[in-house]
Nucleic acid binder design. Structure first.
Lengths: 339, 339
DNA sequence: GGCGAAGGCTTTATCGATATACCTGGGTGC
DNA sequence: GCACCCAGGTATATCGATAAAGCCTTCGCC
């Protein structure tokens, strides 16, 4: 029951621990005969290396961590899946940790990860402020994802928030929509998060089309859950209907929100796209299966994951290049909801 | 840049490493004065314990692993979120790893986890066969989740597959449906996975109602992705329409499949629930927002997570109780899709 | 005043694996 | 015949933290 160690194998095989290590790691300088005997004992006893010990000595585990705000958001699930696949090809393992989208959670997750369980960390920044991030020590390779403005000294990969939102809104305006609401939008202010940046894109598209951004069609939300969007948008629609001022299109700040909006529209008896066009952001795999097929902004997650992985791996390899700040391209995945 | 170790702190503070350890861990036998000085140096240098070393010595990291087949399935995302919350309350961290739903992937994930990076493992079994599981060494606490039959000697928590499927099908039959298709169902055979077990439940409900299970209404699928379901069901509907034998209800083996079925029904111009009733399995948070609101079997994930956590924690604490095999209750979450 | 106890700290051994230096016996070169 | 090389191993130190035991002082108490 007690774990089998190298010295157990060594004792049984009648050789030194070092020889066992050499055999197990396929190093030269061991006679074929000895090698065979050791391997036999290894199989017999069911020996496996203790990664913890190996790590302590070697300084690496072959595992990197991805810290996401929440496990139960499909967006992060998709992201994690991509990272796992890509890292797997490079011979590394991925462990995912949840930060809870709160400042404390992320701080604790990073400090925990920092504690050398992993060779590197990909941190999806949501709750942390500039100063918090700035305070992170960096004896561990870190790549940041997310929409916050972060200190220069970190590698950072982000989505094209403004541009993606601009494309989405323009897509709706081009198709003839004139009252384009933004679900999860926020009034002008400091550009600190996805919601603010995407609202900027929504404004830009209006101005590009020679229109004044209709600020009354911004529908702010306390969070970006589907359930919240469902509720908030239902209320907003009821009010708009009273005033006889229904929107003819909705740009949802995320696909999760888009899902809630879709549900609220359905409840209100409004058809998509005949009465209201709808487009989201993230291009989650599932939205194409939500009737009638929801359009979305494709943030090119594949690109993001590749770049972030490259950056992390080169840092792990010891690169001291100046930190990079990359922005992914964005494009429209047009489906029936904006036809 | 190089990580700060205890001996760095010790040197600067002019004490022994052991004293630093005692201060950091709040052990007695250190004068208030020394304690203060050490803490100052700790803050100055930004020292943090090296968990790897601690682990090697103490035999525990305070982190447990959850191994799931895929990161990008909402079901596992929800599950992971629940585990993280619950374990967090108990002072433990959760790291999630992906096995890739393949035999090799799960074996490698378990062997990797076994290698003492974690204090315990919750393994969601999908690709492994009985023999593979049986071959696992068990010097690390393991709790199994999932629908496979597993060796007695492991703790195991599973869903009420047969019963849940029976309830769902009965729910449809009670509402007057008479041609209840099963999307993702499989012909009678050895009960090795969720699909087989749930098909058994579908049969049982028919027999309970005095009906012969309509085996021609089983729609098998190569995998349980929404996209696959969308495609396969679309084809099945086309064939059924030709024969003039459309179903009047569908029980989908999972909510992912249910989503694909919903899309296929929409494409075929069939209304839910007027033309076809629809119910899934898993009660994912998102299905209530998919128009018109999809019914589902609630597998009581909260219960599963609590039991699994309890079992794991008590194993970690050293319990040698006989292994437990638990089955969660199941109930129907009725929504508009089966009204 | 002497002796045990307790406080405050340091030393030593250890977790499991591995890099490095070191040892031994038989060729090889010249 | 002597120095040197090399294959095949072994012995030692080390990664960072910690349990356990050891070593001085100082203090209390009979």
């Amino acid at each position: 029951m007690a774990p089998v160690t190298m010295s157990d194998v060594a004792r049984v095989a009648g050789v030194s621990v070092m020889t066992v290590s050499n055999v197990v790691n396929g190093r030269p300088r061991v006679s074929a005969e000895t090698r065979l005997r050791v391997l036999e004992v290894v199989a017999d006893l069911g020996y496996e290396v203790n990664l913890t010990a190996k790590r302590l000595r070697a300084g690496r585990t072959g595992t990197v961590a991805l810290v996401v705000p929440r496990f139960d958001h499909p967006y992060f699930g998709e992201l994690a899946g991509r990272f796992a696949t890509l890292l797997g090809e490079k011979g590394l393992h991925l462990a995912v940790e949840q930060s809870g989208a709160s400042r404390e959670g992320e701080l604790s997750a990073v400090s925990h990860a920092r504690l050398h369980m992993y060779d590197g960390v990909i941190l999806s920044v949501v709750g942390l402020h500039y100063d918090d991030v700035d305070r992170l020590r960096t004896d561990l390779p870190i790549v940041l994802l997310g929409e916050q403005v972060v200190p220069e000294r970190f590698d950072h990969v982000m989505m094209a928030n403004v541009e993606g939102a601009r494309l989405a809104t323009a897509h709706l305006l081009e198709r003839g929509s004139r009252r384009v609401a933004m679900a999860g939008g926020t009034p002008s202010g400091p550009s600190t998060g996805a919601s603010e940046l995407r609202s900027e894109g929504w404004r830009a598209a209006h101005r590009d089309a020679g229109l004044e951004p209709p600020e009354d069609l911004l529908v702010p939300m306390p969070d970006l859950e589907a359930a919240t969007a469902h509720r908030v948008v239902a209320e907003a629609l009821a009010r708009a209907r009273e005033r006889g001022a229904l929107p003819d299109a909705v740009f949802a700040v995320t696909d999760q929100v888009s899902l809630g909006v879709r549900a609220a529209l359905h409840d209100a008896g409004l058809r998509v796209p005949q009465d209201v066009r709808l487009i989201g952001f993230d291009d989650l795999g599932l939205v194409q299966h939500v009737p009638p097929g929801l359009s979305s902004v494709d943030p090119h997650n594949g690109w993001i994951v590749e770049r972030a992985t490259d950056l992390l791996l080169s840092r792990i390899a010891g690169s001291t290049e100046p930190p990079q700040h990359l922005v992914a391209p964005a494009s429209i995945a047009a489906r029936a909801s904006t036809a």
